[in-house]
Design a protein around this nucleic acid. Structure first.
Lengths: 227, 227
DNA sequence: CTTTTTGGAGAGCACCGCTCTTGTACCCGG
DNA sequence: CCGGGTACAAGAGCGGTGCTCTCCAAAAAG
């Protein structure tokens, strides 16, 4: 009964969406740190107290934006690395490049999810699920690739890798061997570092327009994975 | 004439140091986002307006803390990777491990310098100089190592690498070949990503106690560099 | 039609960064 | 040694913040 909504329920959904839209707009405009509930209310012509009927706290609003950002990043990486006849290496580098492109296009959203965490903030199940999309997409690409030199994995690492494949149940990443999971996680953190360094100004005065550096780094990442 | 200080100058220096100490204390306590000038003043029994005689703005106070953090991190990496007969690989992995240990011990300081930048903040010469210490220390270790497969560097990258060695004039990192500079920068961003992922909660539910993962990642980093 | 629920608006609390004014203590030159 | 200029702490205050409370109108439920 999706059509049988009372006027109130319709209004509630619409206003929730509008608040989220205004918050999104303000996020891309001034960043998460400067995002204020009062400004969102102002943009919509509401009293600030009214917004709290829809999002109990500023953090709840941020959480919704975090999920959106994770989903946007995950979708970008997934579509860029889909299994469509290309080689594993091409799919992997395309996924990495998509990750960087999305981050460059949405710097505040990227900072929101991969920058310093908000002081009192605790991620819940929704955010961790959404946050897994992008790394799992890359892991799915690697899942069928030959596991490089099968160095014996320490017990802790093997067990943690098993946790990852368990979380990926149902997806193609489930097939990844523990060695590949660990290598994939390394590659993912390296990619995070590459993009974060660029966006957070760590490359200023050195590899500043970072396109060439990022391209080389992604290729080197693929090399290191034996692709 | 360091002893010939007027009472005012002495008081000024002491109070500046005390303010910085209180700010440092509050930073490690509640993090940069929640650091407030008023709380610093409260901790010292001052009026908040008095603090502004010593630091013109909250950002100025943060800048001082940023320089401190960069210096602490740089010193840790430098001492851990000093040239004392150990192999290049050992010095490199020790430097990487020191970087992670420092970050784990000082999470808020690490987030301050390598997390999402403060909205309106612009780093000045002091911060960039201090910020170069740690990566340059690692580059110094790599400087004399054989440059891996000498893949022809794109012109942009070669020129940017030259900028790095120029900035390292006088230090041992100056001797690094462009290929080594690029490889070192890749390793540095990878290390940043590794530590950031751990500290910022990106590894939650997967490689959560990250000691084993970090150790494996650092070894892999050394492998990839051909050490 | 009455009662209950819902969602606005507005005032208010405690905090923030920062500025301005005011009164005092110090420093220095005559 | 003492008067003028200056550095400085304090306090009030401005405009902003997140969030809570009360109040009231409108919608839903009975």
């Amino acid at each position: 009964m999706s059509a049988a909504l009372t006027a109130r329920e319709r209004a509630r959904r619409e206003l929730t969406a509008e608040i989220l839209g205004a918050a999104r707009h303000q996020l891309t405009d001034v960043g998460a740190a400067a995002l204020s509930v009062r400004a969102v209310a102002r943009e919509l012509g509401l009293a600030s107290s009214a917004v709290y009927r829809y999002f109990a706290t500023r953090d709840a609003l941020l959480t919704a934006l975090i999920v959106e950002a994770y989903d946007g990043l995950g979708a970008a990486v997934e579509t860029a690395s889909t299994d469509d006849g290309r080689s594993t290496r091409e799919r992997f580098t395309a996924g990495c490049t998509a990750m960087r492109s999305w981050a460059v296009a949405h710097p505040h959203e990227y900072a929101l999810v991969h920058g310093s965490p908000v002081p009192g903030y605790r991620g819940d199940a929704r955010t961790t699920a959404a946050g897994s999309r992008a790394p799992l997409a890359l892991l799915a690409v690697l899942a069928d690739a030959a596991p490089g030199p099968a160095s014996a994995l320490p017990a802790v690492l093997a067990e943690q890798a098993a946790r990852v494949t368990a979380a990926a149940a149902g997806g193609p990443a489930q097939r990844a061997s523990p060695e590949v999971v660990v290598a994939g996680a390394r590659a993912w953190t390296a990619l995070l570092g590459l993009v974060s360094a660029e966006l957070f100004g760590q490359l200023a005065n050195t590899f500043d327009p970072a396109d060439a550096f990022a391209a080389a780094a992604v290729e080197a990442l693929a090399d290191d994975l034996g692709l």
